[in-house]
Computed example of a mutant assay.
Amino acid sequence: MPEANQEFDIANVIDEKLIVLDLDVSTKVDMINVLTDCFEREGKLNDREAFFKDVMWREGEGETGIGMGVAIPHGKSSGVNKTALAIGTTKNDLEWASLDDEPVRIVILFAVTEGDSDVVHLKLLQHVAMLLAHESFVERLHAVKTPAEMLTLLESSPDDYDD
């Protein structure tokens, strides 16, 4: 039985079609393009170029690399018609402005509608941030082999991890 405070469910914003593993990309722009294509293919965008431009503008505003090889770029954009998350992994080190100055291999891209910009966006960021605060979660994230495994991991509760 779901807890009363769990009105937000990450399963509403991600599915296996938005998870792409072992990409052969070598730049931040390539990774963001691939993930943006996923959003477009799955009908999450009404204006691909506007969304991409908004994400790249946000990237210019500050670091979205949070450390341990993970980045969480995001775009709040009129080009988004349904708030969603896409995740890409690559074996290549991506140069990324990161808190620990280390390259990135896992990118969690947030696409947020203008209407969801406050409540859903914050809950989405909070859930992902709480998971990423656990080193054991990040280690498991780097070891994921299938989209289904990634989805299960993201749907887990931050309470499942004790570091």
Rank of each mutant, 00 (worst) to 15 (best):
I10V: 14
N46W: 00
A148Q: 12
E49D: 13
L23P: 08
T36K: 07
V144P: 02
E49K: 15
E102P: 01
N5L: 04
W96A: 02
H74L: 15
V138P: 03
N46F: 01
G69L: 01
H127K: 13
G88Y: 01
F8D: 11
D160Q: 12
M31D: 09
Q126I: 07
S136E: 14
D24Y: 04
L131A: 04
A4R: 06
L125F: 13
E63G: 12
N46E: 10
V107Q: 04
E42A: 10
G65Q: 03
D30W: 02
R105C: 04
R105F: 05
L151F: 06
F51Q: 02
V138A: 05
A71G: 09
E3P: 00
A133I: 05
E155P: 08
G67E: 04
E59N: 14
V107Y: 01
E42K: 10
I87V: 13
V138I: 09
Q6D: 11
N5R: 02
V20I: 12
G67F: 00
V128A: 07
E135D: 15
E95D: 13
F51A: 07
V144K: 00
F8K: 08
G115T: 09
D30A: 14
G88D: 08
G60D: 11
H74M: 15
L122K: 08
L151I: 12
K91Q: 10
V29D: 15
D54R: 01
V120D: 07
D118I: 08
K145P: 03
T83P: 04
L153F: 03
S77E: 00
D100A: 07
G43Q: 02
E114V: 13
L109M: 15
W96G: 04
V119G: 03
T27F: 07
E102S: 05
E3L: 01
N33K: 15
E59Q: 14
D93R: 12
T90K: 04
M130Q: 15
P2K: 09
K145Q: 15
V70I: 06
Q126D: 09
D9L: 06
E7A: 10
A133M: 11
V70P: 01
D9M: 03
A84K: 00
V55Q: 06
L45G: 05
F52H: 13
A71C: 09
V104F: 06
S26M: 01
L153G: 05
N5Q: 05
D118K: 11
T113G: 15
H74W: 06
L132Y: 02
D54G: 12
P73Q: 13
L154T: 08
I19P: 11
H142P: 01
A86V: 12
K91Y: 08
V107C: 14
F137G: 04
K17R: 13
E95W: 03
I108R: 00
I66E: 00
L154K: 10
M56K: 14
D100S: 07
F8P: 08
M150L: 08
T64H: 00
V70A: 00
P73N: 11
A71E: 04
P158V: 04
N5F: 01
N81F: 02
N92D: 10
H74A: 15
D101A: 09
E102T: 11
D47P: 04
V104K: 00
G67N: 03
E135I: 05
T152W: 01
F39I: 12
L94Q: 15
F8G: 12
L109N: 09
N12H: 11
D162V: 15
F8W: 10
